[in-house]
């Protein structure tokens, strides 16, 4: 691609990654969540791939695959945490400690340290979606060799 696209991509990629991380981190307070944040972060990978070609992202293929597997495993393990009650029960909500602050009922500004297993599942699914969509796009980019036009 041309130098304009490369320069804009160099500026925009960190911004998109930070916004994806924000959407995942505040998934239990504001609109968004794991899938949406992972898709936004994966669009940064798409921008890198379109702007710089496949060789620039070739070494990201194995980390993305590992990230996808780890996200899926973490999601299922967090689901098993609630097995004393039921599968997928929110066993950390309101218990104190990590993400355990109680939430007042009704409209409030939101407490970041709340939600129990929901924010952790947000991170797991976010990394899973980022890894999955990123691996798919890197594989598509590497398909049939690289002919950068």
């Amino acid at each position: 691609m041309s130098v304009v696209v490369k320069t804009i991509a160099r500026i925009l990629v960190p911004v998109i990654l930070v916004f994806g991380g924000y959407v995942i981190l505040h998934g239990h307070l504001t609109p968004g969540g794991g899938f949406q944040g992972g898709a936004v972060a994966a669009s940064a990978v798409a921008l890198l791939l379109v702007a710089f070609g496949a060789p620039a992202v070739k070494r990201l293929k194995a980390p993305f695959s590992v990230l996808e597997d780890l996200g899926g495993i973490a999601f299922v393990v967090l689901a098993f945490l609630g097995l004393g009650f039921t599968f997928f029960a929110n066993s950390l909500a309101g218990m104190g400690g990590l993400f355990g602050a109680p939430v007042p009922t009704g409209p409030n500004a939101g407490i970041l340290n709340s939600g129990g297993t929901v924010p952790l599942m947000n991170w797991a699914v976010g990394f899973k979606v980022l890894g999955g969509l990123g691996a798919v796009m890197v594989l598509f980019g590497l398909f049939g060799g690289d002919d950068d036009r």
Partner: peptide, 16 residues
Amino acid sequence: DVAIAEAGVGAALTTA
């Protein structure tokens, strides 16, 4: 929520 998912997947990833 659906708007963010649609903008991320439909407008960015599919186009790429």
